[in-house]
């Protein structure tokens, strides 16, 4: 019962984040909303596992968290270097090309 209440709250937050992801005037708003959707998905997974008495869903949650982390690092690298395919060293980058 208490997990159902928490799941409803997370679902409401997820819907609001989707609204912002669709409406967001800038790409950064959308990125923020997508990040929030990812977090909501993780919490939803964990709570649903507890609701159905199958907490092994948490393993999928951990996978999601790690995926989120890789996504964050990709975004960081993208904004730092302007592209994902570039090496840090320009000369090595030329050699790779």
């Amino acid at each position: 019962m208490m997990f159902a209440v928490a799941i409803l709250a997370v679902l409401a937050a997820l819907a609001l984040a989707v609204v912002r992801a669709l409406a967001g005037p800038t790409a950064f708003d959308r990125l923020l909303a997508v990040n929030s959707i990812g977090t909501s998905a993780i919490m939803l997974l964990a709570l649903f596992g507890f609701l159905t008495d199958r907490p092994e869903f948490l393993d999928i949650g951990i996978t999601y968290v790690l995926l989120n982390m890789i996504g964050t690092l990709a975004v960081l690298k993208f904004f730092r270097y302007g592209a994902l395919g570039h090496a840090q060293d320009p000369e090595r980058d030329e050699a790779l090309r």
Binding site: A9, V10, A13, R20, L32, S36
Partner: peptide, 29 residues
């Protein structure tokens, strides 16, 4: 803890929609 957590979770999402610009939205999230 679950009820309070759900409450704050929804508060953050409402702020994501109600705040005027990106930086205040980040604050809400």
């Amino acid at each position: 803890a679950l009820c309070l957590g759900g409450f704050f979770y929804v508060i953050g999402a409402v702020g994501l929609n109600r705040m005027p610009d990106l930086f205040t939205r980040m604050h809400a999230v």
